[in-house]
């Protein structure tokens, strides 16, 4: 009886890191949103505000999920923003200048992601080069390539099929509102949001229930013991990078679908937002701890706070940067404290 209790207690304290961090994130998101509704009212009372946040951050959700997986397995990938820009530009050029097809552009996006994943994965996993340096070079390369493909930012205008796809809206029944003219405006989300949410669910299931998913945690938690458990550490690392870059490619396409243009300055700093979202969502930098649902809420928290800051009239551009950094700082400190406690608990 007591033994069982002990086991249960152990299990709880072991699980608590991931879950505790997740709970904090979700709670903070809801508190922030409710606070915004109470104190700022206006737009925040309408569901469409939330959907707008989703619409403009669908790409970030996807890339942040990839980032979480790499971080869980103990790596990092700062090339995702560059990949998103490269995908946007390549697809824009293909669709607008060469009148390409939607399928073709989608293939280009995924191919760029896969190629990035394979190269970075091999360099990190099999040649044992630091992931930061590899993806740093990857980011440089992607940004540079984007300008080499086309210097000038431009909108896709000559491809009707794409414009139709870009304009496609999925109405959410029962969530609309009446505007001041008294006309009912239905609430809507863009295709990208559906893609992002489906990917979140798939990745959540993969991480939780598949062997590969669990080996990400094992490798990130402790390489030695993962090796002893018979996990192929190199292959796991390779796959984490492959998945992350492929998601960046898909995220790039979703981003492109949202903005409809190609530009070398697209998705500037997205890698940092993705890392920040993951951390806020409870992914530990040291690896081994993290949750995709947390990442989703990390993205939402991040963009809600941006919205609050700017609709509060504090739109001097620097406030956004400073708030995000402050949030990041707080969460990092929480993590650091949690880690310390955990180490102490392990010792005693």
């Amino acid at each position: 009886m007591s033994k069982k209790k002990l086991l249960k207690g152990n299990l709880f304290s072991r699980m608590s890191d991931t879950n505790l961090l997740l709970i904090i994130t979700v709670a903070i998101f809801f508190l922030m949103y409710i606070g915004a509704i109470i104190f700022q009212g206006g737009g925040f009372t309408k569901p469409q505000m939330l959907f707008n946040i989703l619409n403009s951050n669908a790409a970030l959700i996807i890339t942040a999920c990839g980032m979480s997986i790499v971080m869980i397995s103990g790596g990092i990938d700062i090339s995702v923003g560059g990949v998103v820009a490269l995908v946007s530009m390549s697809c824009a050029v293909y669709l607008d200048f060469h009148n390409g097809s939607i399928i073709g552009s989608l293939l280009i996006a995924i191919a760029i992601g896969l190629a990035y994943g394979i190269v970075q994965g091999v360099l990190v996993a099999y040649l044992d080069i630091q992931p930061f340096i590899v993806s740093l070079a990857g980011m440089f390369f992607a940004r540079g390539m984007t300008t080499i493909i086309n210097t000038k930012p431009f909108n896709v205008e000559n491809n009707q099929a794409f414009l139709d796809l870009k304009g496609t809206r999925i109405t959410v029944p029962g969530m609309g509102s009446y505007n001041r003219k008294g006309i009912y405006v239905p609430a809507y989300i863009e295709i990208g949001v559906v893609v992002a949410l489906v990917l979140v669910i798939i990745l959540f299931l993969v991480l939780r229930y598949t062997k590969l998913g669990r080996s990400f945690y094992a490798v990130g938690g402790n390489k030695q013991s993962a090796l002893m458990l018979g996990i192929n550490v190199k292959r796991t690392k390779f796959f984490s990078h492959l998945i992350c870059s492929t998601l960046a490619g898909i995220g790039g396409y979703v981003y492109f679908l949202h903005v409809g243009s190609g530009s070398a300055s697209h998705a500037m700093g997205m890698e940092m937002n993705a890392i920040a979202s993951s951390i806020i969502g409870g992914t530990m930098l040291s690896g081994g701890v993290g949750n995709i649902i947390g990442t989703l809420f990390g993205v939402l928290s991040l963009s809600t706070i941006q919205n609050i800051v700017s609709s509060a009239g504090l739109d001097q551009a620097w406030w956004t940067g400073i708030t995000i950094a402050a949030m990041l700082c707080i969460f990092l400190l929480i993590q650091s404290v949690v880690m310390k406690q955990r180490k102490r608990a392990l010792k005693s």
């Binding site: 040649l127 630091q130 070079a137 440089f140 210097t151």
Partner: peptide, 20 residues
């Protein structure tokens, strides 16, 4: 703006050759 692409190639070659 395109400078970074060339630098990236140099970095990658460098780290590959210095990888253990």
């Amino acid at each position: 703006d395109a400078l970074s692409a060339y630098k990236a190639v140099v970095v990658i070659l460098l780290v590959i050759f210095s990888a253990p």
